[in-house]
């Protein structure tokens, strides 16, 4: 029996008149990879932000390990062990790659390191895991897109999260880069961290996720095992109705 680590009930988010997310319940099982898919503008990133505590819902609650997250600051939530990457990468541009990750290591959930050397050591280890250790001394703005996406993951990993949320970390990558990132995601899961990922690449999602949720126009239209969900007629209709290709 898999228990639930992160769950949301009745999550709704309004932007003025637009309802981006409407009454969504979500349950993320511990230790698995949970996929969130849907056409462009379906509200995936918005739901993602609600669950990560970056944005306050208009209605509904989010529970993490039995504690409510809804009223906490993003920093406090990260210290609890839930961390998110940004769909549009936001590195600390002028800092070196290593310093970027060191900040994650200094703060976040892990028993916080005292000295700079300790934090550096953690950061270096994470960089190696993510395959960008060779560019550690470069300013973050000099990385290419693939590198910056990896840096997003590395920074988040350095906080030693229990749950890591990844927003379209594959978008814009070429096939080789995609495969390397998929390997990285698998290794994160193997380390015991729960993963929630928003993704457009259905092939990757099918191979990776153990659970899938489909969002269309802010509503949950399907949920369950990937093969079953992707064969669901409503899901197929939703996708055929848009220009997104599987």
């Amino acid at each position: 029996m898999s228990d639930v680590i992160l769950s949301g009930r009745g999550l709704t988010k309004r932007f003025g008149g637009l309802v981006a997310v409407r009454e969504v319940d979500i349950d993320v099982p511990r230790g698995e990879i949970f996929g969130l898919i849907g056409p462009n503008g379906a509200g995936k990133s918005t739901l993602f932000r609600l669950v990560a505590g970056i944005m306050a819902p208009s209605a509904g609650t989010v529970m993490f390990d039995g504690h409510p997250l809804t009223k906490k600051s993003p920093a406090a939530i990260c210290v609890d062990g839930v961390v998110a990457t940004h769909q549009i990468v936001r590195p600390f541009r002028t800092m070196s790659v290593l310093d970027n990750v060191t900040i994650g290591a200094f703060f976040g959930r892990r028993p916080q390191p005292k000295g700079r050397e300790h934090a550096r050591a953690i950061a270096t280890e994470v960089l190696e895991r993510c395959g960008i250790a060779d560019r550690a001394q470069k300013p973050a703005r000099e990385l290419n897109l693939a590198g910056q996406k990896r840096l997003e993951i590395a920074r988040a990993l350095a906080t030693d999260p229990k749950v890591i949320l990844l927003d379209e970390v594959l978008a814009g990558l070429n096939p080789t880069e995609t495969d390397r990132t998929l390997d990285l995601i698998r290794s994160i899961r193997a380390g015991g961290t729960t993963i929630v990922m928003v993704e457009h690449n259905l092939r990757a999602v099918r191979g990776l996720c153990s659970h899938l949720m489909v969002l269309v126009e802010g509503r949950k239209v399907a949920e369950g095992l990937p093969d079953a969900v992707l064969a669901d007629p409503t899901v197929i209709a939703a996708y055929l109705g848009t220009s997104v290709h599987a």
């Binding site: 920093a75 600390f92 002028t94 900040i103 994650g104 200094f106 920074r155 988040a156």
Partner: peptide
Amino acid sequence: FALAAVRADPDAAETLG
């Protein structure tokens, strides 16, 4: 490091704890 993160991007700093 906290101050440097605040200076560079306060929102991103928050999400990193």
